[in-house]
Design a protein around this nucleic acid. Structure first.
Length: 587
DNA sequence: TATTTGTTGCAGTG
DNA sequence: CACTGCAACAAATA
């Protein structure tokens, strides 16, 4: 069909040709298609937004891959320099553009940027088409289907998507030939629109990550994982090994999902295929599909919550009295806490820009509620700079989770910076890899080298305090203190009843105490039987159930106290969901 | 209202 | 390896 329009496909995320509905729309009936990426100074080191060379180069590699893909289809990618709001009015006019297509993006910066560009397009008489393809679903639709507010738990989210049904199928591949930009357009001059190198962008140090950007690499990585369908079907996230680095125990598809080199929908569709062939497959939240649902949940909550990346003014975030401790923060950031497991992970972050999910848990818990009691917001900033898979909503959500500020509240479950890693890697291979100064430390001491006799330290060529720092805290002491401070912060937040100024009346801390007393009594009522599976099964006369729960039946059976003691708890705390709804309706 | 459940804690016991 | 105590949270469920 003869082309009748000149269109721009504006790449931002979604750096791929597969499952790209915006690209298909741009190609439809087009005379000239202009594939554009704008190197926005907002995302450069020089601006307030910090980005490591690892992630920036991952972006550049992804653009080079896109460039090759367009060249193979008789076109080329145009990398334009400048702010989108300044670039587009110029090229709209110069290229005679009638349509602008880009993938919908729900991040705060993107929303503002896209609103500005939409206004400029409208002023120039340019039609805008902006389909959803970064997430599985249109997250606004999910919110609407959930009654106007985002779900806040995986359980409720899973129910919601079950009700909504499978996400849309991936879009078909683009045509084998794409009408190229017109000849002789100054702003599209090949000499000025190539993909720059990291040096040209202004970085001084080379990227060190082992992961290469681009759609081609993403699809190859996906295929590599799916070569073993049994592994895919049986995947359970909590069972994967955070210390595996030669062959990571997870897919490492996150950076490709972040930049959209891989379509979440394409990934999801492949998973459903495998699941059909393996009916006994694992389930959300621990399955591979569950990982995509976590991403979806956090995009959904994040995009509807004000100040999601901060504590203040964030209605889902517990307000906690974190310490401002620049020394602790610097030691953590610079991998010199004196805990080899923590410092090795932080070194992996700074060199590779990627760590296993549970490794992130270790260092995040350590920085915040576990040991250092530094705000999760500082952790967000460090991860935001270094992670190649840094993703605005996921980063904030996971930090809130680990710091027990939102989504997760069992703050007394603290990761040990010594024993957690040792469970997976008793020889300390991971530590030896990323902290070579400890490579000759005997396995017995490698997670706590300060306990090695001086003679052993000398022999290993690593004397604590000289070659490697002494631990900055005593974990046993620090974690106890942190738990106590978390308990106090939780009590305060109960007393304040939600903190949006519209609270349902508080009794200033005493409510928390009463509640704690009630719980204690309830625990006592279970008569020390606890939550054991065997005891529960014996009582119920059945095989062990999944949970800790049935002990309660025993408690009832032996006539122990009814768990009603220490009353006074009639006042009910406002739930997170209610707080969020109130915040949403205020807005 | 009471009880159970929640992607991923640890130390101690038998 | 299974279980319990630790000290005890918030949401979902019954």
């Amino acid at each position: 069909m003869a082309g009748v329009k000149n269109s721009i496909i504006w790449f931002r995320k979604g750096l791929r040709l597969h499952d790209n509905p915006a690209l298909l729309e741009a190609c439809k009936d087009a005379k000239h298609v202009y594939p554009v990426f704008v190197l926005d100074p907002h995302f450069l080191q020089q601006s307030s937004y910090k980005v490591s060379v690892n992630r920036y180069n991952f972006l550049l590699e992804s653009l080079e891959d896109l460039q090759r893909s367009f060249q193979a289809r008789g076109s080329r990618l145009l990398v334009l320099r400048g702010k989108p709001e300044e670039v587009f009015p110029r090229v709209f006019q110069e290229w005679g553009i009638t349509q602008l297509c880009f993938e919908h993006d729900t991040e705060p910066y993107a929303k503002a940027r896209d609103a500005a560009v939409r206004a400029l397009a409208a002023a120039a008489g340019v039609e805008v088409v902006s389909p959803v393809s970064h997430t599985l679903y249109d997250t606004d639709m999910l919110v609407a289907r959930n009654g106007g507010s985002a779900p806040l738990t995986m359980q409720s989210f899973t129910k919601l998507v079950d009700r909504v049904g499978d996400p849309p199928a991936p879009a078909p591949d683009p045509p084998a030939a794409i009408p190229p930009p017109a000849e002789g357009m100054p702003s599209a001059a090949p000499a000025d629109t190539g993909v720059p190198s990291w040096q040209e962008v202004g970085f001084k140090e080379p990227p060190l990550t082992i992961f290469k950007g681009g759609e081609t690499e993403a699809l190859a990585r996906l295929e590599a994982s799916f070569k073993d369908p049994k592994w895919v079907a049986g995947f359970q996230k909590p069972d994967t090994d955070p210390s595996a680095w030669e062959r990571p125990s997870t897919t490492v598809l996150s950076p490709y999902l972040k930049f959209g080199c891989l379509s979440a929908r394409a990934f999801h569709a492949r998973l459903l295929e495998v699941y059909r062939a393996h009916p006994a497959h694992s389930q959300p939240p621990v399955s591979l599909r569950g990982q995509l649902l976590w991403r979806e949940l956090f995009y959904t909550v994040g995009s509807t919550t004000p100040n999601f990346h901060r504590m203040a003014g964030n209605p889902v975030c517990k307000q906690i009295d974190w310490d401002d401790n620049p020394e602790f923060l610097a030691a953590w950031r610079e991998a010199r806490t004196g805990f080899p497991w923590i410092d090795a992970i932080m070194t992996q972050l700074r060199t590779w820009g990627w760590m296993h999910h549970l490794a992130r848990h270790s260092v995040a818990c350590f920085l915040t509620r576990g040991d250092l009691y530094v705000s999760w917001e500082r952790g967000v900033e460090v991860f935001e700079e270094h992670l190649i898979d840094q993703d605005h909503y996921l980063n904030a959500a996971n930090w809130m989770w680990l710091s027990a500020s939102a989504f997760f509240s069992q703050y007394f479950r603290v990761y040990s910076p010594i024993v957690f890693g040792r469970k997976y890697d008793p020889e300390g291979r991971f530590i030896r890899k990323f902290l070579p100064v400890l490579k000759d430390m005997p396995a017995k001491y490698i997670y706590e080298p300060w306990n090695a006799p001086l003679e052993v330290q000398r022999k290993a060529g690593c004397v604590i305090g000289r070659d490697y720092p002494a631990p900055i805290v005593d974990h046993a002491v620090a974690s106890k203190a942190c738990i106590a401070r978390m308990a106090a912060a939780y009590r305060r937040s109960k007393g304040e009843g939600g903190g949006d100024g519209n609270d349902s009346g508080g009794e200033g801390g005493s409510g928390g105490g009463a509640a704690a007393g009630r719980k204690k009594a309830a625990a006592a009522a279970s008569g020390g039987v606890g939550r054991g599976k065997k005891a529960a099964a014996a009582a119920a006369g059945e095989k062990p159930a999944t949970g800790r729960g049935k002990a309660a039946a025993i408690a009832k059976g032996d006539g122990a106290a009814s768990g009603k003691a220490a009353g006074g708890g009639s006042k009910r705390q406002r739930t997170l969901k209610e707080t969020l709804q109130a915040a949403a309706s205020d807005a």
